[in-house]
Design a protein around this nucleic acid. Sequence first.
DNA 1: ACGCTACTTGACACCGTGTCAATTGACATT
DNA 2: AATGTCAATTGACACGGTGTCAAGTAGCGT
Lengths: 199, 199
Amino acid sequence: MSSDHPTTRDRILKATLDLLEAGQGQGVRMTDIAKRAGITRQALYLHFSTRAELLIATTLYLDAVKGVEERLVPSRTAQTGVERLDAFIEAWGSYIPEIYGIAKALLALKDTDDAAAKAWDDRMQAMRDGCEAAIGALNRDNMLSRDHPPDQAADILWTMLSVRNWEQLTIECGWPQEKYIETLKSLARRVFVAETTSN
Amino acid sequence: MSSDHPTTRDRILKATLDLLEAGQGQGVRMTDIAKRAGITRQALYLHFSTRAELLIATTLYLDAVKGVEERLVPSRTAQTGVERLDAFIEAWGSYIPEIYGIAKALLALKDTDDAAAKAWDDRMQAMRDGCEAAIGALNRDNMLSRDHPPDQAADILWTMLSVRNWEQLTIECGWPQEKYIETLKSLARRVFVAETTSN
DNA sequence: ACGCTACTTGACACCGTGTCAATTGACATT
DNA sequence: AATGTCAATTGACACGGTGTCAAGTAGCGT
């Protein structure tokens, strides 16, 4: 798809994404988006009836562009539960910085806009499914720590891997991305993988 | 202080706090606060020059009202590092629901208002000091896991205990407060306390 | 030449924050 | 009783950002 003839809608989505990424989700106004897409602010509303709707559409566009699905393949095809957990953290943890701009914008909108809240919650639910799958795999291997039942373990993993936590550790604490990934992997192992005598 | 003659300023702060608590930090406007304090919106600006300033003043008022300091005594006087860690999590974890309203409002403001960001960061820095102290005590006892150097451990504990994580676990996942506290204690032990042969 | 569609232009409404000038009412001073 | 001061009121207005509307225009296919 997409010859040298990108549709206006696509240009808008691209513009939104660019600005959101550049500004780390900070104050991207309809005017800015319009300007960058090379149209009028009012014309935006011919394609998206609301700012929230535009942002939501942008998340979908984003997933298509970045290819979430492919990234999750290693996790799904992992042999053992522990490997699956590692691969999932690796995949999601590497994805966060790429979606951070839009995530931030959506998160900010979440408090006031129901549609945005729903959009965000949907995506987080998808990510939660991944957590559940990883925990489930661990459990099937009999490697899940008896400290937490599977559903609770999934809640914990889901929370550990939240965008907010990524933000706090990398941006506020200044951790490099690499360190974030490695630490979260080791943390997750320590929390979820049952201790064995041989290891 | 405070006979049957509470000053207007105090009535404003009280009103702000009440609304913030009731609305869980959601959309509390200057108009609402004024109404509840029994004055005009404009009169608010005779006491606080800006919404951000009012919110910041409210956090200070809040700490005075709720008595943070006293709550931290058990943590500071704990005999062992592990006890200190436990006591700190207990104290802070119990405090979060009480400050959640104002925290949410401040957090929302953080993205756009520098003063609010600073106010919030200051308070979080104070809480971080507590994390560092707990980790330090653990380290002094030679009980800190060798997985993480102390500063990194403090980053992790600080992140674990964030308001956002509390929000996610209790509000989104529906955990009761009690469960939140207990789980965080056990998580922290598992992550930070070195395994011993005898235990 | 016709009409359709996508887009532009310019104006306007709504909301919430912040500002200003003029006024009122209560209290203390002299 | 007249004066001044201080806190608060009233009513108006500016600003920024979103969303809406009506009228006009440019390009395209038939």
